[in-house]
Amino acid sequence: MFGLAKGLKYTLKNMTRKKLTYDYPNEPLPLPDRFRGIQKFYPEKCIVCNQCANICPTDCITLTGKKHPDSSKRGKIIDTYDINFEICILCDLCTEVCPTEAIIMTNQFELAEYSRDELFKDLVWLDENDTQLRRENKA
């Protein structure tokens, strides 16, 4: 019986403690800056080096480039850039290798959709996804 009484004491002690739960859907979840959420893409920064598509372990990035419209400039600019969030595991490797930080992580993680097609995010969507950007992107 003594054991039970001791246990009860611990329980009672915990009754007076501050609440630790979050009121999540009503209030946003506090997340640290490094949190890996849905990417933000800057089309103007991208140099079409293909490194992000190559490092992606699940092959979920597809991108195409086109010639620079200003023919005096060399290099390419981005034409299409899609991430398939059905298979993206938000592993952070694409943002780690990008030399120009054209693709960075945000702190958003809410990806629930009613249809799988909606998880296919294209350049425009990724460009517009510009809230809660991550400040520190290179280790």
Binding site: P32, F35, R36, C91, D92, M105
Partner: peptide, 15 residues
């Protein structure tokens, strides 16, 4: 988990 999230950016899958 919060500590690890702060250092790695992931709650379970730290990478």
């Amino acid at each position: 988990i919060n500590l690890l999230n702060e250092i790695s950016g992931g709650r379970l899958t730290f990478n």
